[in-house]
């Protein structure tokens, strides 16, 4: 057994093609980003080596720290929302009538591109004729909020569509994981008299713990480098109130023509992601992986 499963040639054959692609397509850009981050460069003209100047400036840049804080907030909300997705998946994967069609319908929004989702939510949030504020006026609210213009709420206003956009993604993963549990285990538990709560909490959740850990990492990393909807819906504004790391990086590199500085932001983002992932792995580490 061991001998067969340690065949170096097989391992190389299985791993190298993918590894090669990653190294060329992802690591070369990462290294170049690190290199550019040590330069003063507008992205066009000459590059001047400035060592760690960009990073020193970054440490003093309050806008950068604000965007880091916003990105972390998004990560926290995303992780919390995983709980909700898990409940929905447990329900959909359970023995309920119409589960098949319900599951499909629940995942529809995830098929839409960010462009479409952004347009939908811009209409919902429109301050005067948006769906939300018309509803609030109907309820008798005098001066409904400016969802995307008020700096104190804009961040949360854009979080909602983001979290909604990703619901399908996580529900799909959880659903597949739950369905992957051999039915013999579930049946045995039911025979033993487990009620649906016990079944979910004591049997199903521990069995998909590995998948849950992975989704936590995905949610955190995905949130930290999130860009799409924020850029379309608010552009990071007003006045940076919804700026996140990736949108700030984009603004600096592509709008301010400060590619060196933008690269420093991108590289810091990478480091933040690595640290966060490492922490998550530490925190959720268990001695042995659950097996059936």
């Amino acid at each position: 057994m061991d001998k067969v499963m340690s065949d170096k040639r097989v391992i190389a054959l299985y791993v190298l093609p993918a590894l090669l692609m990653i190294i060329i397509l992802v690591y070369v850009p990462i290294i170049m980003t690190g290199y550019y981050s040590l330069m003063k460069w507008d992205g066009i003209g000459e590059r001047t080596f400035v060592a760690l100047d960009n990073y020193k400036q970054l440490l003093k840049d309050s806008m950068f720290w604000k965007s880091v804080y916003h990105s972390f907030l998004l990560a926290v909300f995303s992780v919390l929302s995983l709980g909700g997705y898990l409940v929905v998946s447990l329900v959909l994967a359970g023995r309920i009538k119409g589960a098949n069609i319900l599951r499909k319908i629940y995942l529809i929004p995830m098929l839409l591109s960010s462009v479409a989702i952004a347009q939908l939510w811009l209409r919902i949030y429109h301050p005067s004729n948006g769906m939300l504020n018309q509803f609030l006026s109907f309820l008798g609210v005098d001066d409904p909020p400016n969802w995307l213009a008020d700096p104190s709420i804009v961040l949360y206003s854009v979080f909602i569509p983001i979290i909604w956009q990703y619901a399908g993604f996580y529900i799909l993963i959880y659903y597949a994981a739950l369905k992957n549990i051999p039915s013999s285990i579930i049946e045995a538990a039911i025979i033993d008299g487990a009620n649906p709560w016990q079944l979910a909490y004591k049997i199903k959740l521990p069995l998909i713990a590995g998948v849950i850990k992975v989704t936590i990492v995905l949610a955190v990393v995905g949130s930290l480098k999130y860009f799409d909807l924020i850029y379309v819906m608010t552009g990071g504004g007003p006045n940076g109130a919804s700026e996140v790391i990736a949108s700030y990086m984009y603004q600096k590199a592509f709008r301010s023509f400060n590619f060196g500085y933008g690269s420093a932001i991108a590289f810091s983002l990478l480091i933040l992601c690595i640290v966060a992932t490492w922490l998550i792995r530490k925190l959720t580490h268990t001695e042995e992986e659950v097996q059936y």
Partner: peptide, 8 residues
């Protein structure tokens, strides 16, 4: 997973 696409 961790590199923002715009910097690539």
């Amino acid at each position: 997973l961790m590199i923002p696409i715009h910097s690539t």
